[in-house]
Write a protein that binds this DNA or RNA. Structure first.
Lengths: 226, 226
DNA sequence: CCAAAAGTGTTCCGTCTACACCCATGG
DNA sequence: CCATGGGTGTAGACGGAACACTTTTGG
């Protein structure tokens, strides 16, 4: 390392994961309890430190993997949080990421093992440090994304009903939308395909299941607007 | 520092400033030449390292101040860039920020002193490391912002003509817009006030100068759409 | 007198919004 | 048989896009 670099101070860099899930028509985040002092016991995001031999993105993916056992998850950076005193134990700059997972893909056993729970985003508890800000910013970014990119499907099973899709959209944005208008928009998107399968778990009549055709979407490359 | 923290690796954290200016109807960025190896001589953003006793935001403001002598500048975070090899001289995680300044407020002497130049954003040269990506992302974020928040005025003199404002808007978005439609929208914004002053430098006929009334804007709190 | 920028309204079209009733079925 | 969620179309309002000519004056 050259003289120029060596003069400067090094800092601990961490990643924090805002893991979104959709359950019972609510948008949830996976929260744990901080298990070390300072702040022991407080609600907290799941995080980890960035090593010297991995990129920050890789560290985020690794951290998510440690918690969920899942790879190739949709993840996007929220931003860096760098207040001096954000972590009372040490100077730590943290880069937040949000991830979208299908709750049913997540091994329930790991919930208990890591002492994490799904918490309704509308009812966030007091949290450690700036973690609540991170979640709020992540949600805002996700709200922007969900209007212009087909990311909803990351939070849903491969087959879903239109009502499920609508409820998800409503949960993310925190407001209800008109059923007929919503379905009209969906119908215009050729890459959301109706199957001939019917889901009877949600209603007596049953509802058609739909599927997101990733391939059809990539070709069109546009016309997504919710 | 507790045992928990001390185990982990510390990393150099830097900030890089994407300084936007508006000149000759073009959106420009302030670029310098890297003055140390590796990468000496390459075009580069102006940056600096984050110290242990300052937040990352503070480091960005300090760095901007060192370069421009300006304080209280509009600055927003672009994001963290953390590839392992992004800086071949050392492991450095960098947080990028974009800043908006009025070119005329910037002391021309400092341009030469710091070996920086205004470069047209449409004609970016080859650049060091991931700096070009940073600029592209900054521009995208700024394009989003300029549609919903009155940030244009950070790039213009206190008094400006509607044509200047329109050219700025066009330069940011990289496409032309209709003059009448543009002015119609401006007229609906009460916080963009017409003065009785006339600028004759831009045309023979002369054009009315307008002013952004920050106070009037804060009150309304909404209805900005370009 | 003419080149060059300033200034000004209307029409059309497409998009978004509001809105209410019938269907199928399990219990 | 009825409660529950699934499914469907239209009309009116609104906002955005297209579009051309007159004015002023320095050179």
């Amino acid at each position: 390392m050259t003289q120029y670099y060596i003069e400067h101070q090094k800092i601990l860099v961490s990643v924090d994961c805002i893991i979104f899930g959709f359950e019972q028509n609510k948008l949830k985040v996976l929260l744990g309890h901080r298990h070390i002092d300072p702040g022991k016991g407080l609600w907290s995001l799941y995080g980890g430190f960035v090593g010297n031999k991995e990129s920050v993105d890789e560290a985020a993916n690794r951290t998510l993997y440690e918690l969920t056992g899942m790879r190739n998850v949709y993840m996007r950076q929220v931003g860096a949080f760098g207040s001096v005193d954000r972590d009372p134990g040490a100077r730590v700059v943290s880069v937040a990421y949000y991830a979208l997972i299908n709750v049913k893909d997540y091994d329930q056993k790991m919930l208990a093992e890591h002492d994490v729970e799904w918490v309704d985003i509308e009812e966030l508890p007091e949290m450690f440090s700036d973690h609540k800000q991170m979640i709020r910013k992540a949600r805002k970014l996700m709200q922007q994304k969900i209007r212009t990119e087909p990311i909803s499907f990351q939070l849903l099973p491969a087959l879903f009903t239109l009502t499920q899709l609508q409820r998800l959209y409503e949960a993310v944005n925190g407001e209800e939308v008109d059923k007929r208008n919503f379905r009209k928009r969906i119908k215009e998107m050729d890459f959301i395909e109706k199957t001939d399968l019917i889901d009877k778990t949600g209603s007596k009549r049953g509802a058609y299941l739909y599927r997101f055709n990733k391939h059809a979407y990539n070709k069109e490359d546009a016309n997504f607007k919710l």
